[in-house]
Amino acid sequence: MANTIRIRAVASGDTTEVQSLIRHPMDSGFVKDSKGQLIPPHHIEVVQFEHGGKVVFTALWGPAVSKDPYLKFSFQGGKKGDDLKVSWVDNKGESDSFVGKIQ
């Protein structure tokens, strides 16, 4: 699988602002395909962000989160060049992770 995670993390003062975009269909389970069959739910359940050995943010998502989901949050600490790890897992057990650098 091509990398599904894009992150943009920028340190400014003592705060790091994180934005992420994950490529995922986030099928709600309520939409029908072109043949009239319901597309079964397929959505990310948990996204975790880690910095310096600590979880700095956890998202718990249901099927109402938009396709190719976006997130923005900020945490204290983090400096340019630090690693920031993102990982997700969905309701089918598929997962991906990515380590990016804070800018």
Binding site: R8, L21, Y70
Partner: peptide, 14 residues
């Protein structure tokens, strides 16, 4: 708000 991290970025990469 959407353009802060637009969903077409994956397509640009591809």
């Amino acid at each position: 708000a959407i353009d802060e991290f637009p969903p077409y970025e994956f397509a640009v990469d591809q």
